[in-house]
Design a protein around this nucleic acid. Structure first.
Length: 852
DNA sequence: TCTCCACTCT
DNA sequence: CATGAGAGTGGAGAT
């Protein structure tokens, strides 16, 4: 369910209640589609499109939200919310109240008076503009009362109020300055000079009066709620908490004074049995038990285990790490492959135990991975409770409740709270492993977990622990050099600008560029002028300063993120960097890499590429060895779409972009394809994979939209299989609500049938891209598992270090290079058989930079 | 501490 | 009306 409108409405209420501190308050709703105004004019508010279902579905919950805020709401048949507001505002003002009307509707400005102020949302919901009688007079040049006269003459397109032909706001304003009101205008209409306008006014006199009447808010509606009933006395905590919980408004939940809430939560959790043990014996371990190792920091490479729990539905044991890691029984259990263990986050568990000299074997299920396979929703917070709640298991609390959050994260003073928390996690893992296993089987995704993600987790754990060696001295040296460049470029920018400012601040930069120096604004962002790269590039010819800015930005990114950033994460003892691969964030099945991200080390531009010189083998004389799949996504597209031309091109080992150019530009000889034609064809190929529009392609290739459309049309004509694939996959997505990769990885697309064009288009592009990108991810994952296995079988010293979406990076002794070359190609090219061959390109050198 | 922008990668 | 997929990080500025 969408909750965006509720969220926005909530924030608005929060701001207004806090700011205005009302003594009385009411929220007015429209009662229905028709009102008394429709009796005069059937088409009133006609032509409005239906309320989007995303919004409509939220309305029933508004009442719950209001209850939580302790606010009354009211609606009146045949009247609009405006009339209720108008009537009560009048009454309140008469009784001496100061009234504030909060609305998103400009029509209400007509209610402004000496003691009635109208606040209208400007942007978002928190940004309000106050309208008083005087400010309206000043801005519009008329009094609030005259607003309805204005609409009588000029009409209002949004409410379908007709007004008088040929009279818009400007003319209406002029007429009102002269005559004051619609009534007075018609009293003096004879004095008006003969003109077309006069004829219209005379002909449409009735319409003018009708329009005014329609626009006028009824300030005498038969409202049956009295002001006394509207006194406001604060939030209803119970109602608010249950609303927050239902809507998953966790940030609001945590903002509340949580002491009461936590007590309530604790009461909700049924008592569970667990044993805190100080001595461990073999009888405490059974096949199929769940295991959980608690750490306070998400980076398990550094964070210490603070508590360990294990067990099944019969017995749950909790123990201190000290106890656990001294126990032989525990070690025997962990390292016994035949004793199956169920966990939450297998990779984290592996690494954490590994740091305590234990190698866990026999992990048979991981509820985090299973949950990710079932829904591919973000569970990156790392908290088990998210997975539990998603699968309707209510028996655990969020970590935040036990340990606190942010800087204040720590062991609870009452250790038994932590023990209870962990015991609950163990029970959750036990229970959920059964339900999720069943669901995986129903989706034919069991292999995906047990043969792909789970074995991969073990491989990734080894890679992360291994780490890649980084040359800190090299980085330090580069840091000095880049700093010189930065200083030099900075001086030039200040000289051009005529003043000093923070170049890193887009806000300050846009003031310099677009206000002080007066260059044309090409694009705007949500918050101001865009100074993005593509914008600056368009200013290049007229603005010498942008050349320097682009250079400054490029270098300062290298400096802050890659040099200083990497230096911070090199282990000073071992000179190694240990990234963490996140296995459950990318919705396509790709991995991501954090702390640091080693999947986006610069390569495109030479200055940045030099960073790769700092990534070196762990032993002298060894090499960094890199293998990447050539065109894997297009090959998968060829395979899935079964497009005969695509398949033939790959089977004949043709240059795919050249072949595409030949077909799209209708050239029969490859030698007649110019580099530009090939470049364009390449852009089209990529565009197709991502579901580009003609607009996007035109921007990309700097051609007209029409030309881009022709490219795309011709492409589909010449590669009919691709067109069929796209149509078919979208149809399938609409029908079943999800798409799948070649290996049954699923992605649900709830927006695929949305009436919102943008949401629907986005879902359609996802429908075509996910099977391609996701299948590529699957293939590399399988290749990694196989590579890891083969390297061990062959007892090689070569080590797999990194994965970058379609490539694998190894470090290898010189003597093993040839063997590795053969092995990598064999494994990567043959782990999966498609209807086109998979091809791998490899290279090696003394550093990652040199492996090109 | 969060959000936005700009930059990096496949 | 907006306009090609999937990611993460750092700095500025707002909250």
């Amino acid at each position: 369910m969408h909750t965006n409108a509720l969220y926005g409405f909530h924030n608005m209420l929060e701001v207004i209640v806090d700011k205005e501190k009302p003594t009385h308050a009411l929220v007015a709703f429209d009662a229905g589609k028709t009102t008394f105004r429709h009796k005069y004019f059937e088409e009133y508010k006609g032509g409005r499109s239906k309320m989007p279902s995303e919004f409509a579905e939220q309305i029933p919950y508004m009442k719950d939200l209001l209850k939580g805020f302790g606010l009354k709401s009211y609606e009146l048949p045949d009247y609009e919310a405006d009339d209720i507001i108008g009537t009560l505002a009048r009454e309140a003002e008469e009784k001496g109240f100061e009234v504030v009307v909060l609305t998103g509707d400009r029509d209400l400005t007509q209610l402004a008076s000496d003691h009635v102020r109208i606040d209208i949302t400007k942007k978002g919901v928190k940004d309000l503009k106050e309208h008083t009688k005087d400010s309206i007079q000043e801005e519009m040049g008329i009094t609030p009362e005259q607003i309805v006269d204005m609409k009588g003459l000029a009409g209002d397109a949004s409410d379908n109020i007709p007004g008088v032909t040929k009279i818009g706001e400007k003319t209406a304003l002029k007429l009102l300055h002269e005559y004051g009101s619609v009534e007075n205008l018609y009293e003096h209409i004879d004095e008006m000079k003969k003109s077309k306008r006069k004829e219209y006014l005379i002909d449409e006199k009735e319409t003018a009066f009708l329009s005014k009447k329609l626009a006028t808010i009824d300030r005498d509606a038969p409202v049956e709620i009295s002001l006394d009933e509207l006194d406001y006395d604060g939030q209803d905590m119970e109602a608010l908490i249950s609303f927050y919980k239902e809507m998953d408004f966790n940030s609001h939940l945590s903002k509340l004074d949580t002491t009461d809430y936590m007590e309530e939560l604790a009461e909700e959790l049924t008592e569970i049995d667990s044993t805190f043990v100080e001595e461990i014996d073999a009888s405490m371990f059974k096949d199929g038990m769940a295991l959980y190792t608690e750490m306070l920091d998400e980076n398990y490479h550094h964070s210490e285990i603070i508590c360990v729990a294990w067990g099944n539905k019969d017995n749950v044991y909790v123990a201190d790490p000290k106890t656990v890691f001294q126990s032989d029984a525990f070690k025997n259990w962990i390292e016994d492959e035949a004793m199956q263990k169920v966990v939450y986050d297998a990779k984290q568990t592996y690494v954490a135990l590994n740091r305590n000299e234990l190698t866990i074997k026999g992990i048979s299920f991981d509820i985090m991975l299973a949950s990710y396979l079932l829904t591919a929703e973000d569970s990156s917070s790392g908290d088990l409770v998210d997975v539990a709640v998603k699968h309707d298991y209510q028996g655990v609390s969020p970590d935040e409740m036990v340990y606190g959050k942010g800087k204040k994260i720590s062991r609870p003073e009452d250790e038994s709270r932590m023990h209870d928390h962990l015991a609950r996690k163990v029970l959750a893992i036990n229970t959920l492993s059964e339900t999720l296993d069943k669901e995986l089987k129903e989706n034919e995704q069991e292999d995906l977990l047990k043969k792909m993600e789970l074995p991969l987790a073990m491989v990734l754990a080894e890679m992360e622990i291994q780490g890649i060696t980084a040359d800190a001295e090299r980085l330090e040296k580069m840091k000095g050099e880049f700093q010189e460049t930065l200083d030099r470029v900075e001086k030039q920018i200040f000289k051009e600008a005529g003043e000093e400012f923070n170049i890193n601040s887009p806000k300050q930069l846009s003031v310099i560029l677009f206000e002080k120096m007066g260059y044309p604004v090409i694009k705007k962002t949500k918050t101001g002028y865009s100074t993005a790269q593509d914008v600056l590039e368009k200013l290049r010819d007229q603005a010498p300063i942008v050349e320097y800015i682009l250079e400054y930005r490029q270098i300062s990114k290298i400096q802050s993120t890659y040099i200083e950033g990497l230096l911070k994460v090199i282990d000073p003892e071992t000179s190694k960097i240990h990234t963490r691969y996140l296995q459950t964030v990318a919705r396509t099945g790709r991995l991501s890499s954090v702390d640091p991200n080693l999947q986006n080390i610069p390569i495109r531009l030479e200055e940045g590429r030099k960073i790769r010189q700092a990534f070196v083998p762990r032993e002298k004389g060894w090499k960094i060895y890199a293998s990447d799949y050539s065109q894997i996504e297009l090959r998968i597209l060829a395979h899935i779409s079964e497009d005969e031309h695509f398949i033939k091109a790959f089977n004949d080992d043709e240059d795919i972009h050249t072949t595409t150019a030949m077909r799209v530009f209708d050239v029969d000889d490859a030698s007649k394809i110019t580099p530009n034609m090939r470049r364009d064809a390449k852009a089209v190929n990529f565009g197709i994979v991502y579901g580009i529009s003609d607009y996007g392609l035109s921007q990309n290739l700097n051609i007209t939209r029409k030309e881009a459309k022709e490219y795309i049309d011709t492409y589909f004509e010449r590669f009919p299989g691709v067109k069929t694939f796209i149509d078919e996959i979208i149809r399938q997505a609409k029908e079943q609500g999800y798409v799948e990769t070649l290996f049954h990885r699923r992605r649900y697309l709830p927006d695929i049938n949305s009436r919102n064009f943008n949401l629907r288009s986005f879902a359609e592009r996802t429908a075509m891209n996910t099977p391609i990108q996701g299948s590529a991810a699957d293939i590399l994952k399988m290749a990694m598992i196989e590579m890891n296995k083969r390297i061990k079988e062959e007892k090689m010293q070569a080590t797999m270090l990194l994965q970058v979406h379609d490539e694998l990076i190894f470090e290898v002794p010189e003597a093993e290079i040839e063997k590795l070359e053969k092995l990598v190609e064999e494994v990567m090219e043959n782990t999966v058989q498609l209807s086109v061959p998979l091809k791998v390109d490899s290279s090696y050198g003394d550093s990652w930079y040199d492996a090109k």
